[in-house]
């Protein structure tokens, strides 16, 4: 489903002020940000911490509202999309329910929606995230990487219109994180769901996204909008290409201009 503009996610002239004691006009966190994500596109929001990229994602999910400007998902308000379970989300905090098994955690969106649980779909997803054999395990008995696999599977279980990922691998160590990126790339290639990923890791953004939107902080603004030229499916060797490294260097520079003055 798409809006008049044809975009799956349309953030228009979005400004967000947070109230602060003693400052009547508040703190400007986001300043007139406009961003469109096309259906089937994977866009990475890249920026330093505190640039408001997570706030943008939360607004898209309907967890926050802009002070001015509009947010539309498939031409509708985020609340309307959430009400018909159109979102799949995975945040840095895996937010798995500790009292449910892997299988029941992945089945949760069905139950919350009051829909019959499609066990075939769940089994297929467990296989997709390579957790076969762990169906009855509890989250506390899983490693950090495995928990995030469950998290991703849960985000995909209702075949969402839009997938929202906020630093899903941010709490993992570097080796596991790279491995999870390979997995996510493989899974995404199979589903091609419209995806908005928030990250501050340049390599992750380059490897996963079709387009990278670079943000600067205080107040948050869009600094660059950069298409990623690598063809899909992307093998891990992409990360060793000359062009990958060049783009990586220039993006790192764009993120920390003051450090290179």
């Amino acid at each position: 489903m798409s809006g008049p503009s044809g975009a799956a996610i349309a953030l228009h002239d979005v400004t967000r002020r947070f109230p602060l004691k003693g400052v009547p006009e508040g703190v400007l966190a986001l300043d007139r940000v406009t961003l469109d994500v096309q259906p089937g596109e994977f866009v990475a929001l890249l920026g330093p911490s505190g640039c408001g990229k997570s706030t943008l994602l939360r607004m898209t999910a309907g967890l926050d509202t802009p002070s001015t400007g509009t947010v539309r998902v498939g031409g509708e308000t985020p609340a309307a999309v959430a009400a018909r379970q159109g979102f799949g989300v995975a945040f840095q905090d895996h937010a798995l329910l500790p009292w449910l098994t892997v299988r029941d955690n992945i089945a949760l969106p069905f139950r919350v929606a009051g829909k019959p649980v499609n066990q075939g779909r769940i089994a297929a997803l467990i296989a997709l995230v390579k957790l076969t054999g762990f169906e009855e395990a509890f989250p506390r008995n899983l490693s950090g990487g495995m928990r995030q696999r469950v998290n991703i599977a849960r985000a995909l279980v209702l075949q969402p219109e839009v997938l929202l990922l906020d630093e899903p691998f941010g709490a993992l160590d570097a080796v596991t994180r790279r491995h999870m990126n390979l997995e996510l790339q493989r899974i995404w290639t199979e589903t091609r769901t419209t995806t908005l990923l928030v990250t501050h890791a340049v390599e992750e953004a380059l490897f996963l996204a079709d387009r990278i939107v670079v943000m600067t902080g205080r107040p948050g603004r869009v600094a660059q909008d950069l298409p990623v030229p690598f063809a899909r499916p992307r093998p891990v060797e992409v990360m060793r290409e000359e062009r990958f490294h060049e783009m990586q260097d220039s993006l790192v520079l764009a993120l920390e201009p003051e450090a290179h003055d």
Binding site: A83, F87, V89, F91, A95, R111, V112, G114
Partner: peptide
């Protein structure tokens, strides 16, 4: 936790589903 509450809100959970689950 706040993360769990966010999850249920994005999943469009009815208040009764939120209480129960």
């Amino acid at each position: 936790s706040a993360a769990h509450r966010d999850l249920f809100q994005v999943l469009g959970a009815h208040p009764s589903a939120r209480l129960l689950r």
